[in-house]
Structure formats: structure tokens, C-alpha cells
Amino acid sequence: MFDILTGAPLQLTLKVSAISVLLQFLVGIPMGLFIAGRSSPLRRIVDILTTLPMIFPPMALGFFLLLLLGKNGLFGAFLLQVFGLRMIFTFWGILFAAFIVGLPFMVKSVQAARRQMDETIVEAAATLGKSPMTILLRVILPNIRGGVITGLLLAFGRSLGEVGISLILGGNIIGRTETLSLAIYNAVFDGDFQLAARLSILLSLLAIAVILLLNGTHYRSFFLNVIHQSRLHMKRFKKS
């Protein structure tokens, strides 16, 4: 029953999800902020490129990526020669697939949150003598926090359920590039519905746990603020 908890698919899924969410966080925020700026040809190109994995059929995208990242592909050859990195049928291919499908959700959420933000607070910070970096860290990021968390949740959900691109780039090699989603696919394909059900429940629990964790950090600061305000009111009430 519990053998799936120690199996390679769970370990691989956890590893890939954790790294891809971290990468989506690091890459998605600057990209989202960049394309939220004033419209320019470069911004439009970046915007289209980041949106592509969201609307492009996964199998077709996987195939194009296979051509690009294969050892004879444009980027594949470069990565192999410069870094000695093989993308196809390896962990890196799985990671790239999880990263690329979730990234648009992160970028779009950050872009929307930044566009909704009142621009005068950024101008106010500049008139107070603050540098662009201070404004980013102290004003912009705290005020788009909701968008960042929503983006991470959506990106994580999409990456966790990724099958199409992982199948093509990873090759679905049991024990090496078989994620939980692919393990469910394999179990169904083999007619082992009991294993497929257990793996599906495990995958769902994993998704729910991360949603609760991310939402928890989002609402924790809200509740802490409410508790802090109530304490202050109580103190004032006692004084008076």
C-alpha cells in the first residue's frame, strides 16, 4: 500500500516540482515585471513567447522542443558542447518540461498584479529619494505578493500534472524519468487500476498540501496583522 511513498516517481516528482517552482519564482518575477512595463516591440515578443506554452498543444510543443534540445538541435548541441548537458531522456528534460509549462502562469500573474498596482506609489517612493532596487524590494514586491502566490500555485499545479512534454523530452523511462503523472499513465496503460488510483490520490494530496502551504503563508501575515491590531486596541482600551 505504502510502497508508492518510497518509489522513484514520487521522489522525482517532488524534486522536479520543488526546483521548477523555485526557477519559476526566480525567472517569472523579472519577466512579469518586464512585460508589465510600457508597450514596446521587445516586450511584445517576450510576452508572446511566454504565453506560447499556455496555448500551444503540449505534444506539438514537446516535439518542437525535442528538435531544438536534441543532441543535434540548435540549443541541444550548444548545451552538450559547452556544459556537457544532455536534455533528452534525462532528469534535465523532465525539469525543463515542468518549468516551461508552468512559467506562463507565473509570468501572467505577476504581470497582472503589477499592472493593477497604483503607479503613483512607485512615483511617491522615487520622490522620497529611493533607488530603483529599494523601490522593487520595499514597494513593488510586497504589493504584488498576492499575484506572486497565485502565480506560484497555478504554475505548480500545471507543472505537477505535466504529461505531454515530459513524455517526449523525458522518454517515460521507468526509474529514471517517470514522474507521478507518467506513472499513473503507465499504470492505466498496464491495466493496474488499483495502482493508478493510489498514485492519483497521492498526486492530489500533494497538490492540496502545496496549495494549503502557499495559501497559509499568504493569509498568515493577514491574520498576524489582525492579531497585532487587536492587541493594540486592547492596550489602548485598558489605558483609557
Binding site: D118, T120, I121, E123, A124, A125, R138, V139, P142, N143, R145
Partner: peptide
């Protein structure tokens, strides 16, 4: 500013 532009955070 006309809309005060205080930092909400």
C-alpha cells in the same frame, strides 16, 4: 499626490 499614494504594505 492627489490620491495620497501611501504605501499600502
Amino acid at each position: 499626490f492627489q490620491n495620497y499614494a501611501l504605501f499600502p504594505n
